[in-house]
Design a protein around this nucleic acid. Sequence first.
DNA 1: TGTACATCAGTGAACGCGCGTTCACTGATGTAC
DNA 2: TGTACATCAGTGAACGCGCGTTCACTGATGTAC
Lengths: 224, 224
Amino acid sequence: MASRSERKQQTRTALLQGALAWVEEGNDFASISIREVAKRAGVVPTSFYRHFTDLDDLALGLVDELSIALRQLMREARHKTRQTDKMIYDSVSIFVDNALANQPMFRFMSQAMCGGSEIVRRAIRNELDYFARELEADIRAMGALSHLSPSTLTMTAQLIINTVAAITVEILDTARDNKSLQTALKKRTVKQIQLILVGSAHWRESSSAPTDELREEKMTTKSS
Amino acid sequence: MASRSERKQQTRTALLQGALAWVEEGNDFASISIREVAKRAGVVPTSFYRHFTDLDDLALGLVDELSIALRQLMREARHKTRQTDKMIYDSVSIFVDNALANQPMFRFMSQAMCGGSEIVRRAIRNELDYFARELEADIRAMGALSHLSPSTLTMTAQLIINTVAAITVEILDTARDNKSLQTALKKRTVKQIQLILVGSAHWRESSSAPTDELREEKMTTKSS
DNA sequence: TGTACATCAGTGAACGCGCGTTCACTGATGTAC
DNA sequence: TGTACATCAGTGAACGCGCGTTCACTGATGTAC
């Protein structure tokens, strides 16, 4: 028989899962209630208070689980990616597949990242910032894009994470049961990241250079 | 004295504004109630039903207003932007300044884009898709990036819109009353868009080219 | 222009319901001797 | 090992409150003659 603290931990997990079930059913985390969480966890409403002070507290518990999921995902990406030329596709695939396998958690992330209470939003933003810094460190460790200034590299990593976050929202929203749409969105994201990396590779640290590029394109077009 | 239909229109507007007030107060649209909307509109709860069938219906009314705001913004961007080399900065500035001047509406957009009911999410996604297509048409009309295939240009426009959407969420969330942080985020976004455009300018329509760019960077680094 | 009737936006009472939170409780698990 | 007591996760009744929605209503605006 499990010890008292083990049983308590089980109930805590059941409450967190209950909240995710609410999200999985198509509801917004922002409109959840303590009673609905307790109902899904198979526990009386008052039990909630043995584990969390309020719903924000529970949401922060979910962010902790999200954090673990993201770190596992990073580890998987670091080990499973193949040669350089497949690295982007593999990484995006691992991210998207994780998001699909762990849908309620990533739906919660999408919702609470843009809405909900400020403290939870900040906690999720912290996780994504950490993710971006890890990506930045990996790029640096690969010896790639070394001509970029630290701030430009940071900005590039943030741009890539924003792009991946956007695809997550879109896939969970529009392609839940549509395998071929999932593949199409994966491919689009890979292409977008490739485009960002091409931009980084050709980036020169000067504020006027980039718009020169655009003007040059325009001229070329007109003369042709 | 206003006619009956004019008065009705005024109440309708008051209800829409009441919903935005709820968002402005720091609450999530997903947790609003009909009674709270009516209270902020200075009207009895039952009046709500003279204008909307339910809260989704009201949300779609807000999306209509958002649509108008976005179209005005596009028009402003087309008329006010100066020479090519300032165009990106001017456009981002116009977008960010509009979002700050019209905060509750853009906060609603951020929230309902990722959470809330499916029908509202779809409506907002449609607006952003329209925005991306307009951007695409403008780039084409300028004669820029004409070497890109139609699908690559579409993807580029979507990437830019995603980036602008991300900055909107971040500015409304973290820089509401911090002018210097607003400026910093504006600059970062300008840089990100410039980077995307550099990438587009150097893009060649071949699936292996982009990762070659990355590998080339890596090699260069290792040999130096 | 004046009168008589129709329309309908907004009102206010009422309903049953789910909400958060309190409280005293129960009984299995844990601890001290 | 056995007993007596302490701890505490989960229970269930109870509370006052805001919710969505219904209904019959009122009285100003609109329309027909």
